[in-house]
């Protein structure tokens, strides 16, 4: 079943302007695991009846990995091209499926002429829960499951968003167990700063393995993530520990969709 996701171009052709633009991001567009989360975010938007659209093939990398790696030229080329597209569609509000896109568009685009209200999908979910539009009923029960949450650096420390993603877990009929390194003390998954696109430097351990050791130490059965890079790193860590049966890595959006049977 196709989702019938509207694009900005279609909306414009019909003379409509959506309330919010869903910025999918490169991982959300191409990575198979992340694509599923992208579709889940669309399901949530459609379920609550928010008018939204995506850019489709008009979207391009925000420039985040280039900027973190030191390539400011490439970053600004990407940023200015994207801003031109966004401004042409008169975009006012953006929800992103990735903390890196979120941070870049929210904090680094305004200085280059791109001023938008930007939220991350965990904030959208929190808002919908607080408004009573989203609950955790009619779907899968998480009763008795030990769930922990891994803070993405660019959502947590980078932008001080610690509570929004936790809200989506607190409404489940189970207990949220925190790792010792959580919130502002959270441990990176190892993918930030463009590490996602290169081999790690020489060391005695991979960072994602260090993180999964911590997940194992608190006996969590589900690790909730809110970032496609964290998703890849944590999933790889679980796989390398041979714990795929015992530990599931799920995005906040996936958990919400499952809990509501969407």
């Amino acid at each position: 079943m196709s989702l019938a996701v509207p694009t900005m171009a279609q909306m414009l052709a019909e003379g409509k302007e959506p309330e919010i633009l869903f910025w999918v991001g490169c991982a959300g567009s191409f990575d198979e695991r992340a694509q599923k989360i992208t579709r889940d975010i669309c399901k949530i938007l459609q379920h609550v009846g928010i008018s939204y659209a995506v850019l489709g093939t008009e979207e391009s990398c925000t420039g985040d990995p280039a900027k973190r790696a030191g390539n400011e030229f490439l970053f600004q080329m990407q940023a200015m091209t994207n801003i031109e597209v966004l401004n042409a569609y008169n975009v006012k509000k953006i929800v992103t499926g990735c903390p890196h896109c979120f941070n870049t568009i929210k904090n680094e685009y305004p200085g280059l002429g791109g001023d938008y209200e930007v939220i991350h999908h965990s904030q959208l979910i929190q808002q919908l829960i607080d408004e009573g539009k989203l609950k955790a009923e009619g779907g899968e029960s998480f009763n008795g499951k030990r769930i922990t949450y891994h803070d993405p650096c660019y959502l947590g420390r980078g932008n001080g968003i610690y509570e929004a993603p936790r809200r989506a877990l607190e409404i489940l009929d189970t207990e949220l167990v925190e790792m010792k390194r959580c919130k502002s003390n959270g441990l990176c998954c190892g993918a930030g700063g463009a590490q996602m696109f290169k081999e790690p430097e020489k060391g005695n351990k991979d960072i994602n393995m260090e993180r999964i050791d911590e997940v194992i130490s608190i006996n969590a059965q589900i690790v909730a993530a809110a970032c496609p890079f964290c998703m890849t790193m944590l999933s790889d860590g679980v796989k390398n520990h041979d714990k795929e049966q015992e530990i599931k890595v799920l995005d906040i959006a996936e958990i919400t969709v499952r809990a509501n049977g969407l």
Partner: peptide, 10 residues
């Protein structure tokens, strides 16, 4: 080797 995670800054 930096992941730009901001843990040091924090």
């Amino acid at each position: 080797a930096c992941t730009s995670c901001n843990a040091c800054v924090e």
